[in-house]
Amino acid sequence: MALSRDQIAQRVARELQDGFYVNLGIGIPTLVANFVPGGIEVMLQSENGLLGMGQFPTEAEIDADLINAGKQTVTMAIGASIFDSAESFAMIRGGHVDLTVLGAFEVDVNGNIASYMIPGKLIKGMGGAMDLVAGADNIIVTMTHASKHGDSKLLSNCSLPLTGKGCIKKVLTDLAFIEIKEGKFHLLERAPGVSVDEIVKLTEGELVVPTNVPEMQF
């Protein structure tokens, strides 16, 4: 079975380490916050100017002056700090954020990512995504392995305009956990009940498959 949105988030959360400063993108990445393993502390960075993002507010706590990068009302965790946008991206560009998780339309074997624009169709802008992928060393991309029509999103060359070049090393899809190195995809783990053949079939870029591909456990 392909992973649910929650399971993708749950698997990503296992990559969190105690003391990590983490930026979570909009969509599935946001859900990672719900699965922080017990016994570790992480601090969430929201690029509109908040380090130490808390949970959503109660109706009584809603504050129009306190939102996250997805423009949702949020609260501050204990130990939070507030800063302006230039400071926020100094943190990001300067490589101070330990882990960035974000979505994508496509990634390719050279670590290129396309996530912000479908020409002639969807033009909303890159927001902070280009800064995040250029600034972070440790990035996990979450996305579905293939489109609804079965077209692979793990390609030999991205077909859409790029968000970043050569910056992605790890991809977690609904079918597999994949590492990108030396111009190839490497299959690390598969979703429970998903066969290697199925993953190979839906991966257009070159995929290296080791003899033993462990199944993710939930």
Partner: peptide
């Protein structure tokens, strides 16, 4: 007015 774009809450 301070309009809110995405009003997201958790139960009390």
């Amino acid at each position: 007015e301070k309009r809110i774009e995405q009003r997201t809450t958790r139960p009390t």
